[in-house]
Simulated assay, not measured.
Amino acid sequence: MKRSIFLAVAAGMMLSACVSSSIGPNVSQGEESYAKIPAPVGGPKAQLYHIGELDRIDITLFQEPEMSAKGMQVDAAGDISMPLIGRVHAAGLTTTELAEQVRTKAARFYVDPQVTVSIASSVSQNVTVQGQVTEPGIFPLQGPTTLLDVVALAKGETENAALDQVVVIRFIEDKRYAAAFNLERIRRAEDADPAILARDIVIVGHSGTKQAWHDVLRAAPLLNVFAQF
């Protein structure tokens, strides 16, 4: 019986050499990863929200209901359209900056207009988590967020996760970058915890070694039954 289980374990370990995953050559590692996707300096800090495409916003002109709007959607070009003043570019602006843009344009038609802008719903401030996590999906970012925070949002990694192969994909100036991090080292405070930004994609890699070992462990009770005959 013991010999049968030993042979199964040995076979599983040999199999792991064939199914183990690896990080591609275009993915940065080590110091290069932190150069592209750095950790927060001095701890996570709250950042001003910048309006994105397809976000919905509320615009209020004091005592001017015909110029006010609830749930106005920013279009794919990053613009909104309002009566009288026409199109206004909103993407990339804070609510205060957009309010000032609208106020300046509305001043041609109203005396000292008072404008407020607020976020009704956010589409742009999300992060996507894929791979070996318990609950993959798209999650809203609320305040400063790090890689450990994002994995926690996805209910943690699975038993077959390759924690040394956690990749973050980010668009910087319209170019796509990918950087790998070691989640185990981050948890031990040996590496810094990188900051995650809106529209990042986090992919937790798959460990063939872990899967082969878990498959062997699950098969062990069955092998024990067969060994009795």
Rank of each mutant, 00 (worst) to 15 (best):
residue 38 P to Q: 10
residue 39 A to L: 08
residue 39 A to I: 12
residue 40 P to H: 08
residue 41 V to K: 14
residue 41 V to C: 13
residue 41 V to H: 15
residue 41 V to N: 09
residue 41 V to M: 12
residue 42 G to P: 12
residue 42 G to R: 15
residue 43 G to N: 08
residue 43 G to E: 14
residue 43 G to M: 14
residue 43 G to C: 12
residue 43 G to H: 12
residue 45 K to Q: 12
residue 45 K to I: 09
residue 45 K to A: 10
residue 45 K to P: 14
residue 46 A to H: 11
residue 47 Q to W: 14
residue 47 Q to L: 14
residue 48 L to E: 08
residue 48 L to V: 14
residue 49 Y to I: 15
residue 49 Y to C: 09
residue 50 H to I: 07
residue 50 H to E: 12
residue 51 I to V: 03
residue 51 I to Q: 03
residue 52 G to C: 01
residue 53 E to N: 13
residue 53 E to V: 09
residue 53 E to S: 13
residue 54 L to P: 05
residue 54 L to S: 12
residue 54 L to E: 11
residue 55 D to R: 00
residue 55 D to V: 01
residue 55 D to G: 02
residue 56 R to P: 09
residue 57 I to W: 01
residue 57 I to Q: 03
residue 57 I to L: 09
residue 57 I to T: 05
residue 58 D to M: 07
residue 58 D to W: 04
residue 58 D to E: 14
residue 59 I to T: 05
residue 62 F to A: 05
residue 62 F to M: 05
residue 63 Q to K: 13
residue 63 Q to S: 14
residue 64 E to A: 10
residue 65 P to K: 07
residue 66 E to F: 11
residue 66 E to P: 12
residue 67 M to C: 15
residue 68 S to L: 06
residue 68 S to R: 07
residue 68 S to I: 08
residue 69 A to H: 13
residue 69 A to T: 12
residue 70 K to W: 08
residue 70 K to G: 09
residue 70 K to I: 11
residue 71 G to P: 10
residue 71 G to C: 06
residue 72 M to P: 02
residue 73 Q to P: 08
residue 73 Q to G: 10
residue 74 V to D: 01
residue 75 D to I: 02
residue 75 D to V: 04
residue 75 D to G: 01
residue 76 A to V: 11
residue 76 A to W: 07
residue 76 A to G: 08
residue 76 A to I: 08
residue 77 A to M: 08
residue 77 A to W: 10
residue 77 A to S: 15
residue 77 A to I: 11
residue 77 A to L: 15
residue 78 G to Q: 01
residue 78 G to F: 00
residue 78 G to V: 01
residue 79 D to F: 01
residue 79 D to A: 00
residue 80 I to K: 09
residue 80 I to W: 10
residue 80 I to F: 06
residue 81 S to V: 11
residue 81 S to M: 06
residue 82 M to N: 02
residue 82 M to G: 03
residue 82 M to C: 04
residue 83 P to G: 03
residue 83 P to S: 05
residue 83 P to T: 07
residue 83 P to M: 11
residue 83 P to L: 06
residue 84 L to M: 03
residue 86 G to K: 06
residue 87 R to Y: 14
residue 88 V to T: 05
residue 88 V to H: 04
residue 88 V to S: 07
residue 88 V to G: 04
